[in-house]
Design a protein around this nucleic acid. Structure first.
Lengths: 331, 331
DNA sequence: TTGAAAGCGCTAACAA
DNA sequence: TTGTTAGCGCTTTCAA
């Protein structure tokens, strides 16, 4: 064994007294090897504690068995759940998932994506923060498939896996309108975020279908944290004409609203986009726009893996359905 | 550019009309390069859309800039949160995190760990499922540091990051005893799991300190899911002598217990190990054994990275403190 | 069935 | 300051 490093195929070959190509054959389970020789090689492998260097192997063969995942914000349980789903789908194909977070920063996203490409990933799943992805153009051309998740990318041909944001929001608000509510508050994060814009569009569609339109005084946007959403809700409750119902455009907003409503037992109908842990134990009934979050991650992984083998025949956008469910109402 | 593949340093050198070592120097920002030459190289890089192959680079240099993380179960938000923390700590050092899940299976854990070692990871963070890790002996000897997280490993010299399970459980139960409770139920997952054994030991210590011991009729173990925990709690509530307080040994058990208690408004004092999302919005007050979960992941990453540079001077076990907090009580 | 030689794309000595 | 020559550990021809 050389200079105290890890043993190599050459070391194993020397130990077993065979050519180093024979070792390669045995290690890779290739046919046409004399069982006796294989036996000797395996014994040498064992004695030396040899492990194949997968990086060196892929250098020559060009095989890529790693997939990159860039989340927008890993501290958000939504993206963590997706990462877990992508990971398990990827490992089912005996591949690995390398995970990173852009922290909602376009430059970071770009640096991470390019870095992962340099690491020769076989594909990239990206929750985009940047609004131009032409920096990936070259990589896609060279055969690294990219799949956008949760938000669409732009500037390159790549598949996208999106939620039916519009339909989900529309259905939730339509229900509130049908129940006779006329003062419906709509609380959102910044409308510059793709999902927020879509959900807001769904809200408008629901109002339009009922021949009405949202009351600007009851619409609050830019609610980026539960605390901010809570304060906004408190102000609405204390206004001259408080809402009788509220639609929360994501789970952070929903949580903030609950923080405002629950302590004072305000009597308001609740609907929100995104389910969350323990929603079923809430004391108040709430309608939730739910969807298969693990399925979202799985679909992304499968779409990506399919691209690896198939020719780039136009990009496709998958719309993952949402459905309304009841949560809470536990006394 | 050769056979339609990605451009290499040789291609860039040809394009720029310089030697390929000069390209290497420019790409790696090494000193002693004529600015004019660097300019020409950079232009060629741009024209060709060249990106350095980080795998090939590390093959020769031996640099390892990837850390492996093996969770016991990525569908558990606890491990996902840890993974996120490890990821961000690792990327702060400009390294990458490869994520995998053993699904609580020892053979899977072993296969994943060995696989990651073959991929030349610079270190391994493992939430162990196997109870013998001597299979990693060789890798540790060869300089791949291993850090165990949440549960101790065995058979190899490796650092461990553990929670103060015993102290946390003891404090929670001691408080119930001090409040005068005499019929305290203790609900656990299987005691064969390290954390459960430790927490149970903490419970016994608290009882012993009060000159008492747990009532076997009120101790239920093997509660692996919220549903099972809920049913166990319901049986206790309906028994002849129901408990006046309950200690839940992890958050799954706590959730099951809440599912049993909340709908019927049973008047029972609650304490549980592990915080969970939205615990602060629960209608019932509950004492929680809390800890810094992100810090746990960060500490694991930092301990691992420190090992990479330092000599293997004996393994160290870090005990992460826990503290009791109030949750819930929102009407 | 086995082996020798030539790469993969890069870094690291060494020379010029 | 620049270039040359060896490798890193493996896979892939191609010949024996």
């Amino acid at each position: 064994m050389r200079k105290s490093g890890r043993p190599t195929m050459v070391d194993v070959a020397a130990e077993a007294g065979v050519s180093f190509k024979t070792v390669s054959r045995v290690i890779n389970g290739q046919p046409n090897v004399d069982p006796a020789m294989a036996e000797r090689v395996l014994a040498a492998v064992d004695r030396l504690g040899y492990h194949r260097n997968a990086l060196a192997a892929s250098l020559r063969s060009g095989d890529r068995d790693t997939i990159g995942f860039i989340a927008a914000d890993l501290s958000n349980t939504f993206y963590m759940a997706i990462a877990a789903a992508v990971s398990s789908a990827v490992s089912r194909e005996r591949m690995h998932l390398v995970m990173a977070s852009s922290e909602e920063d376009a430059a970071t996203e770009r640096a991470l994506a390019l870095d992962l490409c340099q690491r020769q990933v076989g594909g990239l799943v990206v929750v985009p923060t940047a609004d131009d992805h032409s920096y990936l153009q070259r990589e896609v051309e060279l055969g690294t498939p990219v799949v956008f998740l949760d938000r669409p990318g732009s500037g390159i041909p790549a598949d996208a896996i999106l939620l039916d944001n519009r339909g989900g929001a529309r259905a939730a608000v339509a229900e509130l309108l049908e129940a006779g509510h006329r003062r419906i508050a709509v609380l959102l994060d910044a409308r510059s975020i793709y999902t927020m814009a879509e959900r807001w569009a769904g809200v408008e569609e629901a109002f339009a279908a009922a021949g009405r339109e949202p009351d600007p005084a009851l619409v609050v946007e830019g609610l980026h944290t539960p605390a901010v959403a809570r304060d906004a809700m408190l102000r609405l409750l204390e206004s001259d004409a408080p809402p009788t119902a509220v639609f929360c455009a994501n789970n952070r907003v929903t949580i903030g609203v609950l923080e405002a409503i629950l302590p004072r037992g305000a009597d308001i109908a609740l609907a929100g986009f995104d389910d969350f842990e323990l929603s079923h134990l809430l004391p108040r009934r709430i309608r939730i726009v739910d969807y298969d979050i693990a399925g979202l991650g799985r679909l992304a992984a499968e779409t990506l893996l399919a691209r690896r083998n198939a020719p780039a025949t136009g990009s496709h956008t998958h719309l993952v359905p949402t459905h309304l469910v009841d949560r809470g109402g536990v006394r």
